[in-house]
């Protein structure tokens, strides 16, 4: 594929298409988990216990096949999709030796990680 402008790399278009496929896969995975949770709610598996749960409680809830576990995991997967996209950009920029943009991607991930830590401490 011919680059559109001079700073495009030869694999630019294929990388963008790959990134699009990653977003589709992440969204599909999240929606599937949410629909599983909704189905379990419809069949009365954990309808009364629906509330915001902690990440630590997730394995137990999923193991017992409770709706809350699938719903929270689905929401977490959805939250993780943009983070995963930034990870991929970090790797792609580092591979191309575009260090300034790799550093920006790393900074974004650090701020997001700070958000998790600060949010949990405030809670």
């Amino acid at each position: 594929m011919t680059p559109t402008v001079e700073n495009d790399l030869p694999d630019q278009a294929s990388f963008e298409r790959w990134l699009a496929r990653l977003l589709v896969a992440g969204l599909a995975c999240a929606v599937l988990l949410l629909l599983t949770g909704v189905t379990l709610v419809a069949f009365g598996r954990g309808h009364d216990g629906l509330h915001a749960t902690s990440v630590g409680a997730l394995p137990g809830l999923l193991g017992r096949g409770e709706a809350a576990g699938f719903l929270d995991l689905g929401l977490l997967v959805l939250l993780a999709v943009p983070v995963l996209r930034v990870f991929c950009l970090l790797a792609a920029f580092a591979r191309r030796r575009e260090w300034w943009f790799a550093l920006c991607s790393l900074l974004i991930l650090l701020v997001l990680a700070t958000g998790v830590v600060v949010g949990m401490k405030t809670w």
């Binding site: 949770g37 629906l50 915001a52 939250l79 996209r85 701020v111 949990m120 405030t122």
Partner: peptide, 28 residues
């Protein structure tokens, strides 16, 4: 928008303010 919203949502999620009974139907 996705990563910006994620930064805000992480703070709400960590504080237990994401109510699945509201968020899940809206997201779907």
């Amino acid at each position: 928008l996705g990563v910006t919203a994620c930064a805000g949502a992480v703070a709400y999620f960590a504080r237990g303010l994401v109510d699945p009974t509201v968020a899940v139907p809206v997201v779907l």
